[in-house]
Nucleic acid binder design. Structure first.
Length: 420
RNA sequence: GGGGAGGUGGCUGAGUGGUCGAAAGCACCCGCCUGCUAAGCGGGUAGGGGGUGUAAAGCUCCCUCGAGGGUUCGAAUCCCUCCCUUCCCGCCA
């Protein structure tokens, strides 16, 4: 969230950022309630101060004639505070609904059409024959099964079978190994159900409740990304600056309702209610967050390069970047069969927006007052669509799929999927 | 699931109605002392919010002893609800 203080001092900047993001922002209502809140709070606190003073006198003198005044003061302080608290709750709720501002390097734009490709790696492969889609190939090879998933769970679910499931496991191992051994991340295994406080910390609540699966009758939600539990790992903590940046990598399944995506990507292994992801999360100081964000993006890109997949890096424009993000890159891998790019990673930095919600702070130096940390995350990578890109990029004219060099050590001797 | 114990500052741990945001110890910081280090001596060290201030500093007030309610002029201390930790029993991958 943005702090009340920041909104007080920069109401126009907040309004402008929200408008360019295409998000509503109740700035006027916040400023109004802020005045009301402070009025009642001030009254409550001054009354309380008088009461405390007189109460001390009473403790000494036991002068019963003071009691009636004390009682009145207590009543006044209590009722004023009750009003102040009620207004503050309303205010806090509105604050959670104000979108983040964005970095000056973010292009202004309304839709994905105004996103900017900042770099590309590799080129579209020339297969020498008509490329088939991953779902066509996958079903033919028996490594992807959508029909049976419908029977078990419904649409937007899938089974990976045999060498398909093995491919997913190989990718997970490969990515975790690279990020832990070469990029310096600490591996984390986390709860896959989290409470509302955690969801609020990463800004999935209150605005995006309809995107989440909820456990009936309990304050537990299925995570839409490991970003939620891992970022919240340090909630309510004050960290030491010298232990930062903190870097975690976490493999976890993710669940999303895909509300609002009806009819979109219904075909194929692209947009599912459940998918796997290796997630990168950093908690950094204010000074280093932009650099660390660039590095995290490169760490994710490194996986694509090692897999030999053509991709681009796209800088999201204001209208396409989202409520909480301060700056965001998407990594899009080329899928020759689909003849389009697939978003395999989304890397974002949040400034102190999430840290403020989750109350993650650090002490810049010994004895200094705590500051809010900066949080960063990105997929490194999403498994589902990476598998699509691999299948379509490494397909052969005979319908079999070559295993990328980097994955061979993880495939238990399988070098060609479909050969058996 | 049943029963017992317990949640206090960075840590350990006192504190059962007022003078307690909180003894003491540890840790850490600043001085002094000292060939150097250690020891010793003195001082300091929680977080949040409001007001004032151009701002920083400062001053001042309020809140916070797991969370939320309640009793009381006054609550870390009494009462209620919830959460969590731990031990014993039961169950279980």
């Amino acid at each position: 969230m943005l702090s009340l203080e920041f909104i007080r001092k920069n109401p126009d900047a907040v309004r402008r950022a929200a408008q360019l993001k295409g998000e509503p922002a109740p700035v006027d209502e916040i400023l109004r309630l802020d005045g009301v809140w402070r009025g009642h709070l001030h009254k409550a606190e001054t009354t309380k101060a008088e009461q405390n003073e007189l109460s001390k006198q009473f403790a000494k003198s036991r002068d019963e004639s003071l009691k009636e005044r004390l009682r009145q003061m207590a009543d006044t302080a209590k009722s004023e505070l009750a009003v102040a608290d009620a207004v503050k709750r309303e205010l806090d709720d509105l604050l959670l609904r104000v979108p983040n501002v964005f970095h000056e390097s973010v292009p202004v734009g309304e839709s994905e059409a105004e996103n900017v490709v900042v770099r590309e790696w590799g080129s579209k492969p020339d297969l020498g024959f008509a490329a088939r889609t991953h779902y066509d190939l996958g079903e033919a090879l028996g490594i992807l099964d959508f029909e049976r998933a419908v029977k078990i769970a419904g649409s937007r679910f899938a089974f990976l079978v045999g060498e398909g499931a093995r491919l997913e496991r190989a990718l997970v191992q490969f990515m975790l190994d690279v990020h832990t051994r070469e990029h310096g991340y600490t591996e984390v295994w986390s709860p896959l159900l989290v409470n509302s406080a955690a969801m609020t910390g990463t800004a999935n609540l209150p605005k995006f409740a309809d995107q989440l699966f909820k456990v009936e009758g309990r304050d537990l939600w299925l995570i839409p990304t490991a970003e939620v539990p891992v970022t919240n790992y340090h909630r309510e903590e004050i960290l030491d600056a010298d232990q930062m940046p903190i870097k975690y990598v976490c493999y976890a399944p993710s669940w999303r309702t895909e509300a609002g995506a009806a009819g979109k990507d219904t075909r194929g292994f692209i947009r599912l209610h459940q998918f796997s992801k290796v997630e990168l999360v950093k908690v950094t100081t204010a000074e280093t967050s932009l650099d660390e964000f660039e590095r995290l993006t490169r760490d994710a890109e490194d996986i694509l390069q090692r897999l030999g997949l053509h991709y681009n890096v796209m800088l999201m424009c204001t209208g396409d970047m989202g409520f909480a993000q301060y700056k965001k890159y998407d990594l899009n891998a080329w899928a020759p069969g689909l003849d389009r790019y697939l978003e395999v990673s989304s890397c974002s930095t949040f400034n102190d927006f999430q840290a403020m919600r989750a109350n993650i702070r650090y002490r810049p130096e010994r004895g200094a007052p705590p500051r809010f940390a900066h949080t960063i995350n990105g997929s490194g990578l999403a498994l589902t669509r990476t598998i699509d890109a691999i299948i379509e990029t490494y397909q052969r004219s005979d319908g079999m799929i070559a295993v990328p060099e980097a994955l061979k050590p993880y495939m238990g001797g399988v070098e060609l999927i479909g050969a058996r």
